[in-house]
Amino acid sequence: MSRRPSRFLLGGRRFSPAASLALAAPFLLLLLVVFLLPLATLLHESLFVPEPGIGNYARALQEPVYLRVMLRTLRIALFVTLLALLLAWPLALLMARSKGLGLALLAAAVLLPLWTSVLVRTYAWMVLLQRNGVVNQMLAQLGLSDQPMRLLYTEGAVVLAMAHVLLPFMVLPIYSALKGIPEDYSRAAQMLGASPWASFREVTWPLCLPGVTSGCLMVFLLALGFFVTPALIGGPQQMMIATLVSQQVREMLDWPFAGALVGILLFFVLMLTLLFRRAVRLDRFVGQA
């Protein structure tokens, strides 16, 4: 018995695989031209310029200055993820328990920063944290500091500003997971004698874990390649790998070495994504079996 080719449903209409591919062709062509082709060219140069081999990669992994930049990038990305999680969890829980106007206001507070340029938000943090900025003036008025503190161009400032910029990418997955948990589950657990902490630990947390892990992965990966905020808030002292790549391309004109840095970062991102898929079964988030 012959099987009919599978068809895809979109907007109430069914499309054959060929028609679906034709509809996706413009996006796939754009992806090929503006992302895959330049990336492949850069990786090719990293392996074959000035001569075939892994010399550029060995240089990146052997010289201490570049290793410090890579380790700093991983450390900052980890701290940003943890801080974003601590800030996002209560907000997502409040959104999940709110309705009507309250939910609309909270959602606007989360989504509105996404409509503002990252550069603008970064400059706002520079105004707040500079030597004569709002934070130092407030500390002086409260009598907590006799002289301006050095807040700008520090690793803490970079972590704080990046966590603020990336916070929506943590809030939304957690809110989606919490919204899908029926309130009867926690109520039933407490009726059976569980304390609020036990109800959270045994019911709420396991059910919202996919949203938490998804948000953490998204924020961590975005933080690894962040450029504008670390460059302005951290300066040369807090250089991350994206800033280093930009320096190699614009100032040193060393495209092969920049390609090696990109290749190392890409390898780490792919490995992390595969580990995440293996650990929590990423297909649950897209509705696949």
Rank of each mutant, 00 (worst) to 15 (best):
W255A: 00
T122P: 07
A198W: 11
A163L: 04
A258G: 14
S46D: 00
A107V: 08
P52F: 03
L87E: 10
V203S: 02
Q247A: 07
A104Y: 05
S246T: 04
P182N: 09
L142A: 14
L93F: 04
G193T: 10
L275H: 00
Y123G: 13
E63S: 06
T116V: 12
A163F: 02
F226D: 09
N132R: 13
A60I: 06
V33L: 13
V33A: 15
L112T: 01
L232H: 08
A231Q: 12
P196A: 09
T204Q: 09
S98V: 11
F285A: 14
E51L: 02
V158Q: 09
G211C: 06
R131S: 09
Q190H: 03
E45F: 01
E251V: 13
R4T: 15
L224P: 11
G259P: 01
P256L: 04
Q130H: 15
V69Q: 11
L103C: 05
L31H: 13
L151G: 08
P148A: 07
F8D: 05
L85M: 11
V249Q: 04
V80D: 07
I54K: 03
L119Q: 04
G234L: 04
F220H: 01
M240L: 15
L67S: 00
L85I: 04
T154N: 07
K99M: 13
P90V: 05
L10D: 04
M252I: 14
G133L: 10
L103V: 04
A22M: 12
A19Y: 10
L167T: 03
G100H: 07
M70G: 13
S186D: 13
Q130G: 12
G102S: 09
L23Q: 05
M138T: 15
L282P: 05
N132Q: 13
E202H: 14
L86S: 14
L29V: 15
V262E: 00
M252D: 07
R131C: 02
L160Q: 05
V159P: 11
V110F: 02
F27L: 15
G211T: 10
C208F: 12
L139V: 03
A198H: 11
M252G: 06
V212G: 09
A22D: 05
V118K: 02
V158E: 03
V49H: 06
M149P: 12
H44N: 12
C216T: 00
T243H: 12
Y66K: 08
L244W: 03
L119V: 14
R13P: 11
L71N: 06
V34N: 02
G53Q: 00
Q247N: 14
G156P: 11
G225R: 02
Y153C: 01
L101H: 11
V171C: 02
L23T: 01
T204M: 07
V34K: 06
A108D: 00
N56I: 08
L28P: 08
L85W: 02
L128Y: 08
A18L: 12
Y153M: 00
F220T: 04
P5N: 03
S6G: 10
R59F: 08
A260D: 08
M271R: 05
L106K: 01
T41D: 10
L85P: 08
L43P: 11
F35Y: 15
R281W: 01
G215M: 10
L266K: 02
V65I: 11
L74R: 01
R13G: 07
V69T: 15
F267Y: 10
M271G: 14
L39G: 04
I174P: 14
A260T: 09
V49E: 07
S214Q: 09
V203Y: 06
F226H: 10
N136L: 05
V34M: 13
D184H: 12
